[in-house]
């Protein structure tokens, strides 16, 4: 080998060492921009994973349509596998996560939850639908109210979240406070105060919840008063009844619609 070639060889070796350092630095930078690069399985499709996810999506829709009506465990496993494979191709494919979770929800809520957890891990949790359906599934699956409230609370704060997300969050909170009707009514009243003037449907629904809770609690009080003989306990029940009546009276005095809206009259 000539001396010029030896110099070239040395240059190649040094260059490869520099390339190695650069590649590792750039890889770490890319992982900070696209975290799913590190957390999701590596695909071997020549970098065309994202395009193939669209093809896979269209195929999967056809497959789902062909197998409508089947709801046995094997079918649920197949749906789970197919949606997993699809979301490996595009880890931020929120429509696929939601469609998969809704398909699995009735028979295999655990698999549906796994799919939504994967969406969170892949960084797709910044779409309100992921924490919303995750919260609803948590409520359905194991009834962990605290966790579900956290998920629904996050969903209602995300961009483009429709008003019913906040209502569902409030409903879950009311379930958590179910033993204390006054606390439930206060929570709903607090919720009303956060609504925008144009959210009349949510306002009416919240008022309905307060009225129902109050009326139910009043009925319970009356029933207990009939059976209660201890004077101290009766006194407490009467105080509670007065408090409930006061809250319902306050509520009936409050406007139910936006006073500035044309429909207010």
């Amino acid at each position: 080998m000539k001396s010029g070639s030896l110099g070239l060889l040395a240059l190649v070796i040094a260059g490869l060492a520099v390339c190695s350092y650069c590649a590792n630095t750039i890889y770490d930078n890319k992982v900070t921009i696209v975290p799913s690069e590190q957390t999701m399985p590596t695909m071997f499709y020549a970098g065309m994973d994202k395009f193939l996810s669209n093809v896979s999506w269209m195929t999967l829709i056809q497959w789902e349509a062909e197998h409508t009506g089947r709801s046995d465990d094997a079918q649920m496993q197949a749906i789970s596998q197919k949606f997993n494979a699809l979301t490996n191709l595009d880890p931020r494919f929120v429509d696929a996560y939601i469609d998969g979770a809704l398909s699995l929800r009735a028979q295999r809520a655990d698999l549906a939850k796994q799919l939504l957890d994967k969406a969170e891990a892949a960084g797709a949790g910044d779409d309100w639908r992921v924490p919303f359906y995750s919260g609803m599934l948590t409520l359905q699956q194991d009834g962990d109210l605290h966790k579900a409230i956290g998920e629904l609370n996050r969903a209602r704060g995300l961009p483009n979240a429709p008003p019913y997300v906040a209502s569902e969050w409030m409903r879950a909170r009311a379930r958590e406070l179910a033993g204390d009707p006054i606390a439930v009514m206060d929570a709903w009243s607090g919720f009303i105060s956060t609504l925008r003037p144009d959210q009349t449907i949510q306002r009416r629904m919240a008022i309905g919840e307060i009225t129902d809770t109050g009326q139910q609690a009043l009925d319970d009080c009356d029933l207990q008063l009939k059976n209660e003989t201890d004077s101290k306990a009766r006194e407490q029940l009467l105080d509670k009844r007065t408090e409930l009546q006061k809250r319902m009276k306050d509520l009936s005095a409050a406007p139910t619609t936006n006073p500035s809206s044309p429909n207010a009259a």
Partner: peptide, 18 residues
């Protein structure tokens, strides 16, 4: 890893679409 031709480092197609 650094010595291999890491074409993925230049593949910003999926990330741009996302």
């Amino acid at each position: 890893y650094g010595i291999l031709p890491n074409l993925d480092l230049l593949n910003t197609r999926a990330a741009s679409s996302q």
